[in-house]
Measured scan of single mutants.
Amino acid sequence: TYTWNTKEEAKQAFKELLKEKRVPSNASWEQAMKMIINDPRYSALAKLSEKKQAFNAYKVQTE
């Protein structure tokens, strides 16, 4: 089980997950979700809006 003390740690864990699963920077949210949804870190960020925000930040960083 994973635990995160801060929102920032949770966001980092979520981005690490995207990186580890090699989600391409041109992937849509739907494509990315299919690649990461079974990992416990997918739940790091509770709100869908937070997940999408972190995903978009990840995409910008990896382009």
Rank of each mutant, 00 (worst) to 15 (best):
A13R: 06
L45R: 00
L45N: 01
A32E: 00
N5Y: 13
L48P: 06
K34I: 11
Q53P: 02
E8N: 06
S49E: 12
E50Q: 07
E20V: 05
L45I: 10
T62P: 09
F14P: 00
K7G: 06
K11N: 15
L45V: 05
E63I: 14
S49K: 10
E20F: 07
K11Y: 15
T3R: 07
Y58S: 02
V23E: 00
E50H: 05
W4L: 02
K59D: 03
K34W: 10
E16A: 14
F14M: 02
E30A: 12
T3L: 11
K47Y: 07
F55Y: 06
F14V: 01
W29Q: 00
K7Q: 10
E50I: 03
Q31L: 14
N5M: 09
F14I: 01
E20T: 05
W29E: 00
T1Y: 13
K19Y: 14
N5V: 13
E20Y: 06
A13T: 05
F14K: 00
E16K: 06
S25H: 12
E50M: 05
P24I: 01
K11I: 15
L48H: 05
W29C: 03
A10G: 08
K34V: 11
K7H: 13
S49C: 11
E63P: 09
A44S: 08
K47W: 06
S28C: 08
T62V: 13
Q53D: 12
N56F: 12
E63K: 10
L45E: 01
E8M: 06
Q61S: 13
K15D: 15
A13L: 08
K19M: 15
F55H: 03
E50G: 03
S28D: 08
R22C: 11
L18V: 02
T6E: 06
K47S: 13
E16R: 06
T3V: 14
Q61G: 11
E8S: 08
P40T: 06
N38T: 11
K11S: 13
N56P: 02
I37H: 13
N38C: 13
A54W: 08
E50C: 06
E9Y: 04
Y42K: 01
A13Y: 05
R22F: 07
E16F: 06
T6D: 10
Y2I: 15
T3K: 10
S43P: 05
Q61F: 13
T3M: 08
K47M: 11
T1A: 15
N38K: 10
Q53I: 09
R41T: 03
M35R: 05
N26A: 07
F55L: 09
A44M: 04
A32S: 03
A54H: 04
A46F: 07
F55P: 01
E30S: 12
K21S: 09
Y2Q: 15
K51I: 05
Y58K: 01
K7P: 15
Y42F: 10
K11L: 15
M35K: 05
K34H: 10
Y2P: 15
D39M: 01
K47P: 07
I36P: 00
P40Y: 14
